[in-house]
Design a protein around this nucleic acid. Sequence first.
DNA 1: CACTTCAATTGATATTTGTCAATCATTATC
DNA 2: GATAATGATTGACAAATATCAATTGAAGTG
Lengths: 241, 241
Amino acid sequence: MEPRRIEEACIKCKDRCCARCFDDGEESIFNCLTTEELEMLVKEKRHVTFNAGETILKQNTSASHVVCIKRGLAKIIAEGDGDKKLILRLVATHSILTGGGIFIDEIRHFTVQAVTQVDCCFIDSEKIYELVSNNSQFAFELLKLNNKQNIQMLNNLVGITQKYMPGRVSDLLLYLRNEIFLCNPFDTRLSRQELADMTGMTMESFIRILKEFKTSGIISVDGTNIHILDEEALQLISRKG
Amino acid sequence: MEPRRIEEACIKCKDRCCARCFDDGEESIFNCLTTEELEMLVKEKRHVTFNAGETILKQNTSASHVVCIKRGLAKIIAEGDGDKKLILRLVATHSILTGGGIFIDEIRHFTVQAVTQVDCCFIDSEKIYELVSNNSQFAFELLKLNNKQNIQMLNNLVGITQKYMPGRVSDLLLYLRNEIFLCNPFDTRLSRQELADMTGMTMESFIRILKEFKTSGIISVDGTNIHILDEEALQLISRKG
DNA sequence: CACTTCAATTGATATTTGTCAATCATTATC
DNA sequence: GATAATGATTGACAAATATCAATTGAAGTG
């Protein structure tokens, strides 16, 4: 696949979105599209900027569009009864968000909220259906993406169900370092409450574990900035439960 | 779609499997296949019978085959560290099992074990890939199936994370009644340990909640047989947390 | 600077859930 | 029928986690 082709299409849509938006961290799910398909997809897309804290997609609304994130960081929240929240994962630049219920009930099964300022574009779901119908490679890529999220959620479920708090906090820190920020002192931009919501525990409990880790010299923390000093220790704690 | 066509193909494969195996409780994911495709799929399939308790698929082995269940009940188990287990869901007659990691890493991410005697057939994953490539409707159906499982796991995750034990037991009982056995006094054939493993709690805790429900007159229990007497009460408890 | 505000932290305590050991019940075995 | 063996149940207790209230600390506002 010649990168030139994608670049061309990107230039067409002015803000270099879409061809890269659909990248899930590895290769672009979009590489398999023809120039015509890319153009079809990009045509009529709406580009939107959200400020930190704003809601990009709201759980239980109807899912007529797919969103791809061009720049920024967002959190995926499953809202339970009451004001209970569970942050499922973070999504960074070049992610595609189908809202969970695409292909099924056209309902969004989670809320997506901007953590930093987020640039993204909204694409009509119909176009995705069209691509699935006409381009089997694209269908395959979408299946892969879906599968990956499925496995990730499975691991999450097992972790949260079977591990004690220190193990869950370790998992979170390793996730943030290795899958989201990809560098070591990293700035989460997330409040303690939000971090706790990623582990399914209360803020107070989360803070206590964090403090233990600080005291043991495993991490150092400054505001929303976290520095992992002993990754092996975290991995050990993660495994021990 | 003329039912005759499917019937024909079923007769060809002698034991009337496959065309119906891939049904996920609603319409068959397989309805969209041509006679040739069905034949291609069914050719070289291996039909196997498992006794109750036997392992059908084992977590962490390589996933070269897809399994469809023709008859019986099986449980999907995520094995954690130690001997911790979480039963993700049950699968009944006419289900397709991709093993979790098909399309990604070709590794099975969970174990599948027979609860009753299970008749199933093993189909080479390659054939599924081939169908996805050649039949967009099939790809679409597979995406739907995947999506559905994703949403189910999401709800499970939220439930287990945010609800107290009575809520989780309620959810389990409603799941068994409305999604698996589809009748009211139902015989789970599952031990207390297994039922507990579906809720992420210990057997003793599970038994205590069950007893509370019995005492309150919400259910009656005889061995592995459960009779829901007051479904509304269960729904209320499920919502309350 | 004083004052407000809100997130972060800490401590004391209550609740939930798990662990361990004992008992009961049922079935299988001789 | 006596006797294992196994799963179900119960009780006492311990551990994990949440709740509530108070305090600290930093950032913004007048």
